[in-house]
Design a protein around this nucleic acid. Structure first.
Lengths: 341, 341
DNA sequence: ATTAGCACTCAATCGATGTGAGTGCTAACA
DNA sequence: TGTTAGCACTCACATCGATTGAGTGCTAAT
């Protein structure tokens, strides 16, 4: 559907005003605020047209208009210009990342915090499952008599550990030797292939140290069970308290619960995701739970796998800023991942 | 102040009713619900007395009475019987703990979750700073050419790690040797004494491996900076959404923010804390931010240090259940800590 | 095609009124 | 002297109608 210049301008004005104030926008206030040299009556006619076409709606007869979800969709598809991070904001993020040169988990948390602070919406960032990353290194470290640490390192530099009990009398050299066997067998395998059953071969190989290997295998199993899933980090959930549309306690409760309970959240993010910024407005969301919210999200590439991140806000959302921010942040962190890890 | 039997019974009735319903309690409903064989008028006289003494108050002239903070205090001090966990609940906790035989951090999180679920209030659990625990073991583990892992183990079994860059040409044997020097010098020191300046001695000792030691020292510094403070875990913050006293959005926002932002929370928990269950009701709290809430908390002993945990709810709180729960959980986790770590 | 003018709509606000749960006081009673 | 029935009084809360005002749609003039 093609709109003429003036209709586009009016639609945009209404969207900007409505996003800012959360109030229906009237014809008078448009001419006043946006310096049009046509009369309110003309605007009214145009608005009536836009409503017929489905881009606007009226809460009730004597109120102004608000953009419909379709109106937002049109704006996002045909008119929006993404607003990237300012230099200042980029600098802030840079500093934040420099402070935490630590594990990627921490970095991700930092990025999530940044996203929610700069946008004033709730942010999420999903770290891809380690299942598909590659095993690099296993080390058995003696901790004290009777205990050792199983240390697993992956190719993206993720480090996981578990403590195990070992029989007395196993020397550090024994542990070293066992580690070496592990590494020989597992080199380059995918993490998800380190399953116990497939490593039984080791056990048969080295009868004598059977018990240590058994324990180590258990630890690896355990690590996989507990960390293999993708990880969801939410930041700034309380930002939604700022939005007037959630002054209703029940709504608020539903949404906060959705954001706080790990399990619930995963369901609302689409599976197939690209490196473009994608937008789902209100009922466009598959999951009913967030059909009164909008989702702006993108994928980021990390060592072969695809992570996801995005922002969650009201339908009346600053899509231009949200989309621009995500664009900027994605390129920044992909650079970072490429250079640092 | 001593109250006669009947006044005590009436006070208790009012507290139980008010905690349950959050509504002012009238004289009629007391005789009705609690099967007293005196008339409402008599109860009214008693209530007037209790109000004069400060144990009750009236929101307005024509409403029923609600317990004052002083009334709750009297109840807690002189009448309350703690209600321990049921056998069922103990079993649930046991199962939960068995599932997570992992790090103490995870166990603590599990306990926090349990507390908030079983009580329907927000829970907190504070893991004491590792500053005062003792260094047990340091290990430098080669990860790949040019990188090593600094592994620090404390006497309570906490394991921390940081990755460092090392010059090419350092062999695993070199790392082993350096580790041994570290361990010799640091054995039995408190973690907070592992500060860089005090370990310079190492550096002078081994000119040749200077750079590795430098990096390792940096890593240790870094670990201390980032993990040395006590750690606060909050669970079930959203439980406060259930309480009618927080239907006011502003209040709600203040309190949720307090619970979600790490820094803010520490200020509201008293410093000196014993292994008894302690209760702070409303304005008894030092911190203004939670003077419209109550705090029920206790200390737990872990390897020499004192951790803290507790529940946060409205003034109209089920103190008996909260206090009993904390009592039970404390003994359970002290057993656990004693046996397992 | 645009605009001024005007009647119309309807949410929101305000005030008056009624209702009811609960109290305090008094006088009678055991 | 403690207890109780009776009754007038208070006050939050709900309900109803009137008023207000921002905004619309329609019509007729430009």
């Amino acid at each position: 559907m093609v709109l003429d210049e003036r209709k586009r301008y009016i639609l945009e004005s209404i969207i900007k005003d409505y996003v800012e104030t959360a109030e229906p926008v009237g014809s008078r206030s448009i001419v006043r605020k946006h310096g049009l040299n046509i009369s309110a009556a003309t605007v009214r006619n145009e608005m009536a047209d836009l409503e017929d076409m489905g881009y606007l709606e009226q809460p009730h007869t004597s109120a102004g208009r608000i953009p419909s979800e379709m109106g937002f969709r049109y704006y996002v598809d045909c008119m929006m210009e993404k607003e990237s991070l300012t230099d200042e904001e980029v600098e802030i993020l840079g500093k934040k990342l420099q402070e935490s040169i630590r594990e990627w988990n921490d970095v991700a948390q930092g990025i999530g915090d940044f996203l929610s602070q700069v946008s004033n919406y709730a942010s999420f960032i999903i770290i891809p499952s380690i299942k598909y990353s590659h095993f690099k290194y296993l080390h058995l470290v003696p901790i004290q008599e009777g205990q050792a640490l199983v240390l697993v390192v992956t190719d993206v530099g993720l480090i996981m550990h578990r403590r195990i009990d070992i029989p007395r009398g196993i020397s550090p050299e024994d542990l070293q030797a066992i580690s070496e066997v592990f590494n020989r067998v597992c080199k380059g395998k995918k993490i998800m292939e380190l399953r116990r059953s497939e490593l039984q071969i080791l056990r048969d190989d080295l009868k004598k140290r059977q018990q240590v290997i058994d324990r180590a295998l258990e630890a690896v199993d355990n690590l996989l069970d507990n960390t293999a899933d993708e990880k969801v980090l939410i930041s700034g959930a309380l930002n939604i308290l700022k939005e007037p549309e959630f002054k209703d306690l029940d709504k608020l409760k539903r949404i906060l619960t959705l954001l706080e309970e790990d399990g619930l959240f995963k369901g609302i993010i689409p599976d197939n995701i690209s490196q473009d910024v994608d937008i789902l407005i209100g009922k466009e969301n598959q999951s009913e739970d967030i059909q009164e919210m909008s989702l702006v999200f993108t994928g980021y590439r990390t060592a072969g796998e695809m992570g996801k991140m995005g922002l969650i806000g009201p339908i009346r959302m600053e899509y231009w800023k949200a989309a621009g921010t995500l664009d900027s942040v994605r390129t920044i962190i992909e650079d970072l991942l490429h250079n640092r890890f």
